[in-house]
Design a protein around this nucleic acid. Structure first.
Length: 727
DNA sequence: ATGGACAATGTTTTT
DNA sequence: CATTGTCCAT
């Protein structure tokens, strides 16, 4: 029974849990990945479940690969045939397989965030909607949220005029996707969920096949994903989910930690396992994390404990500005390494927004210390990479008009607005996509398709069509790398991009890097390569090999662990982010975010904040993060002014320095003192008892956010609400 | 059709 | 400030 060796009692209970729904609530560092892998091994090795009847859904491809590998270590080759991957990747494969039942072809492309935005813009143009009045991003985000809620255009709820606009855009946007033979990220889930919902025979086929469905990071599923796993497990009902509501950080993407509650009410017979023992962090780190998260109302309290001992106090340090912060980080890292207290790879630096990485990168570069940066966007968002990918995408799916428009004039070959318009019109008249039109033109230069263009345009276009056609024809014989090289050579991309400048060299270097990635797909093929490129997660870009510190956002840090963690930019406005200030749910999520960050640390934790922040080119005074006030003093090394502003003491004792450095706060909140502080318990006449979440002075009155038990979040004006303070 | 010069505008987090 | 879009001269 080595499937259970080294597991504690709760972990064992989860691994060998019987048939039926199982909910595992797992605190950070409680070994949930281990539980998942051992359970899979147990199901296959002991229960005799066939691997192809198991589906395991993870959050990143990296996690999927790791899990698959670890299962392999336990049971060897018996793992083959398992379905394991992210929701998006699994759905992408299913949808290709089932495309005959769907309104797109199996060679569809997946539109990334940039493509989606372009498509929304195109829609707005075609519908004559003013981009200034209706921001494309905001419209797109509404569409995305709707899709995650499984709302089709016709179901889109209309409450005001904007909703009506969104609905129209949504409808048109979908038809554009189909005419490009493309799906966006959200479509992968949406189409799959509807395919299973509307086709009982198909649903049954899948549901019968998957005897066991296991889901990691369950708290970050959205309604579409929740519906999917319910459908997939609808026959055998063996659905095993692992999650932690306190680590739910993707609400803005439609994730709903209440799916945990929904699960409990949908499956009242579920077995429940709690994993509270932490194998990662020192007790001090856990205590800080708990002090932080305890301020969130309406959660099931968890008591995290470890056998690791108290460990060192966390270091809280105030710096002058973010540049100074970066300098401090570099010095601390240098000192740790020189004193042999850490390997470079043991160290991570985490921040709230991607923009913060820049200043850190500069510090690393000028210090000559190598670093690893987590972020797929950084690589795949580059112009030269997008260009090459667009060529490949077009060849794979010539109906991809967006990719065609990107590459049609790269390198510049004299195709401008006029020619483009002519091409579009002619293609439309012929009833085919511009891409197919071009290929046709290349195939048969004498065809009727050539009519209606200027002689110049006709020559350019039919040349281009011939080149495209050659690629498309060879695409079935050539492997990804050869195809890519062929394109680069044919268009002389080297000369175009590598213009002798340092930047050009850099860009060319990126192209070579992409070649290296393509080389890994020689056997599996172009389609798999393009799919991988579209669905990479940030974490997937982290190479374990290099011995260097890691720079990453708090979001990207989820699921990872490091002996030493720096969290920088702990200032109000950054963490919590200013966009969250007026939304109580969002503020709770900001708190969970810092909780996730803290619980990544195994041994040492550095918390840094600054007096000033450089933004928009100007340096501006900022406040320390309000969350810092919740850390018990005795867990911290390096006393700083903010600590005297602990919520129990009240703002009057706040150090003078802060009042001086932050002039915008001085005006109001510091002149009139607050009566209520986060963490206080109060009673309200009609809403009963609640806990103060936040309070601020505005126009000589105090505005208080309170969470009332059984009622929810309320914002009240103190002078009107008659709150009674409970002790 | 192309590329350069200027203005305007805007920063969360990502599969 | 840094990126993106728009206008204008070639």
């Amino acid at each position: 029974m080595d499937f259970l060796s080294g597991l504690n009692e709760q972990q064992q209970q989860a691994v060998i849990a019987g048939l039926g729904p199982v909910l595992v609530l797992a605190g950070p560092g409680s070994g949930k990945t281990r539980v998942l892998t051992q359970r899979i091994a147990y199901l296959i090795g002991i229960q005799g479940v066939r691997p192809h009847q198991i589906m395991a859904v993870t959050f990143t491809n990296k996690a999927a690969n790791e899990m698959s590998e670890r299962v392999g270590q336990l049971i060897g080759d018996h793992k083959h045939g398992m379905t394991i991957g992210t929701f998006h990747a699994i759905c992408a494969r299913f949808l290709r397989r089932e495309s005959e039942h769907l309104p797109f072809e199996s060679n569809y492309v997946i539109f990334d965030a940039d493509d989606q935005l372009s498509l929304v813009k195109q829609t707005l143009r075609e519908l004559n909607i003013d981009e200034k009045r209706y921001r494309p991003q905001s419209i797109h985000s509404s569409i995305s949220i709707a899709k995650n809620e499984l709302l089709l255009p016709d179901d889109y709820p209309i409450n005001n005029y904007r909703d009506e606009v969104v609905q129209r855009v949504y409808k048109h946007y979908q038809s554009l996707l189909l005419s490009n033979n493309a799906l966006d990220f959200d479509d992968l889930l949406l189409w799959m969920a509807y395919l299973l919902q509307d086709n009982p025979p198909i649903r049954e086929r899948y549901a019968r096949r998957y005897e066991h469905v296991l889901v990691d990071e369950f708290q970050d599923t959205n309604l579409a994903q929740y519906t999917l796993i319910k459908q997939l497990s609808s026959f055998h009902q063996n659905i095993f989910v692992v999650g932690d509501a306190d680590q739910s950080i993707y609400r803005w993407r439609g994730a709903d930690y209440r799916n945990v509650l929904r699960f409990e009410s949908d499956f009242p017979n579920r077995q429940l396992v709690l994993l509270e023992q932490n194998y990662r962090s020192t007790q001090i780190i856990l205590d800080i994390a708990m002090a932080m998260i305890d301020r969130n109302p309406n959660r099931t309290p968890k008591h995290l404990f470890t056998r690791k001992g108290a460990g060192q106090k966390a270091i809280l340090h105030e710096l002058y500005d973010d540049r100074d912060e970066a300098r401090y980080v570099l010095e601390a890292i240098a000192s740790l390494i020189v004193r042999n207290q850490a390997q470079p790879r043991d160290i991570a630096i985490m921040y709230r927004t991607n923009a913060q990485s820049r200043i850190l990168e500069e510090a690393f570069l000028s210090a000559g210390i190598p670093y690893k940066l987590v972020g797929a966007q950084r690589f795949y968002g580059r112009r030269e990479i997008k260009d090459i990918i667009a060529f490949l995408r077009f060849i794979h799916n010539p109906e991809d008009e967006l990719s065609l428009m990107r590459i049609i004039n790269i390198p510049p070959r004299g195709i401008g607005d006029k020619t483009l318009l002519a091409l579009r019109t002619r293609a439309q008249r012929a009833g085919i996509s511009p891409g197919l039109f071009l290929l046709e033109l290349g195939q048969n230069p004498e065809s009727k398709y050539r009519e209606g263009f200027s002689r110049r345009a006709e020559a350019i276009l039919s040349n281009l069509g011939q080149m495209f056609l050659r690629w498309v024809q060879r695409c079935s014989n050539l492997r990804p790398l050869e195809l890519m090289d062929r394109i680069i050579e044919d268009i002389n991309y080297d000369a175009y991009i590598n213009d002798g400048t340092e930047e050009g060299l850099d860009r060319w270097g990126n192209v070579l890097e992409l070649r290296r990635l393509a080389a890994e797909f020689q056997e599996i093929g172009l389609e798999a390569f393009l799919e991988q490129v579209a669905l990479v997660s940030d974490q997937d870009t982290l190479e374990a090999s290099a011995n260097a510190p890691t720079l990453l956002t708090l979001h990207a840090a989820k699921g990872l662990e490091f002996p030493i963690v720096f969290i920088v930019g702990l200032n109000d406005g950054t963490l919590p982010h200013s966009r969250s200030f007026d939304d109580l749910e969002a503020m709770m999520e900001e708190r969970r975010l810092i909780y996730v960050g803290i619980t990544r640390a195994k041994d040492r934790l550095y918390l840094l904040y600054s007096q000033n922040r450089i933004a928009y080119g100007y340096s501006e005074p900022v406040d320390p993060s309000r969350f810092l006030a919740d850390i018990p003093l005795d867990l911290i090394d390096g006393v700083s002014p903010i600590l005297s502003r602990s919520s129990n003491v009240g703002p009057m004792t706040q150090n003078q320095r802060w009042q001086i450095s932050s002039d915008k706060k001085v005006k109001s909140s510091e002149l009139k003192s607050k009566l209520y502080h986060p963490g206080m318990h109060v009673r309200h006449n009609s809403w009963g008892e609640g806990m103060i979440l936040n309070s601020r002075i505005e126009d000589d009155d105090e505005i208080v956010d309170i969470f009332f038990d059984g009622v929810g979040l309320k914002r009240v004006v103190a002078s009107l609400a008659k709150l009674e303070i409970k002790t």
